[in-house]
Write a protein that binds this DNA or RNA. Structure first.
Lengths: 177, 177
DNA sequence: CACTGAAATGTATAACTATACAAAACGCTC
DNA sequence: GAGCGTTTTGTATAGTTATACATTTCAGTG
């Protein structure tokens, strides 16, 4: 069973927006899928479902199977991929209001979260560390003393172990949605 | 149950040919798969299995799943497809034996190893930090929570001080050997 | 040749994806 | 709002792919 009430509410709200903008909710979801597939590793449809849920799209695996077919997305050794080469042309029309949130970039790039003492280490897809660190810096979490990012790893330094544990669980919640 | 006798006979015959040509039967099958995938529509692994059987290769779906993985073939709306664009160039020397080991890169680049609390800092020659960190990530040592690399310094975050000491000594051993 | 470790394969099944069908939501017209 | 054809979605399940484990084959070595 799913949480029908909140889902229904969310759907209605989303539909309201959709009508105002003249775009269907399905079309918006397709754009979100393209974005996720292009910028992060998506290994199966259930993973995609969880990532979409964090963005407000709550659908079942069956719907995603249909979406993927309609978008002509293919699956290979590196997870799902946009159609051949120019898979971007249609990917536009993505509104970005200000810097992305930690939740957003973690959904897109985050892979693993681990803690050691007062530090938290986040593994991301290649090139994902900088955006994650930037969003953390921007949101300015009180537990976080500072961040350092390489190519696919972010080191988050916290006040102490307890705060690190808090940060770890917050990030892990986002990731596991 | 399958017809073991004829299968066995065919295998032996094929192996005989294989030896003469100096190529393994698996390699021959891989080439046949590439050819079929490139020139005809293959929608699933069972179809591929039947097509291969006509060419004298009698294997199960499981083996084909492994072959497809090794050949880095992807599946999309148009059936299976060879890897990215130049699907042919790779025809030879497919299996590379992965990234270099930590030992190899440390011998090449490593200069000094020091520890502080649960962290280990490795100094390398200029530009050596990334390869060292990459090999550490690849080998996925259990004591290591994560790594971050600059130009000539790698920071290795470990579970705790004890693990960091272990890592320190392992790296130092490589360096001094 | 017997033994040994590595590589390749088959079997059985878990994991994942596609689809038939039914229900709901939509966009119309009246 | 009621009626009606179309579109979208969920449910249940069939279809497809990946993988743990066991077995067989292969290449060396003593």
């Amino acid at each position: 069973m799913y949480i029908y009430t909140s889902a229904a509410a969310r759907l209605r709200a989303a539909l309201c927006i959709a009508r105002e903008k003249g775009t269907s909710i399905k079309y918006q979801r397709h754009n979100a899928i393209r974005e996720l597939v292009a910028s992060s590793l998506v290994s199966n449809q259930d993973e995609l479902r969880r990532k979409l849920r964090r963005r407000g799209f709550e659908v079942t695996q069956a719907t995603l199977s249909r979406d993927i077919h309609e978008l002509r997305i293919s699956k290979g050794p590196g997870g799902y991929a946009l159609p051949n080469g120019n898979g971007n042309g249609t990917a536009t029309a993505v509104e970005d209001d200000g810097p992305p949130t930690v939740a957003e970039v973690m959904e897109s790039f985050g892979m693993r979260v681990r803690r050691a003492m007062n530090q938290v280490v986040v593994r991301t897809v290649m090139g994902g560390a900088q955006p994650v660190a930037a969003s953390l810096d921007y949101e300015d979490w009180p537990e976080v003393v500072g961040t350092i990012a390489g190519d696919d790893t972010v080191l988050i330094v916290c006040q102490d172990s307890r705060h690190a544990t808090d940060v770890e669980s917050k990030l892990r919640t986002i990731l596991e949605s």
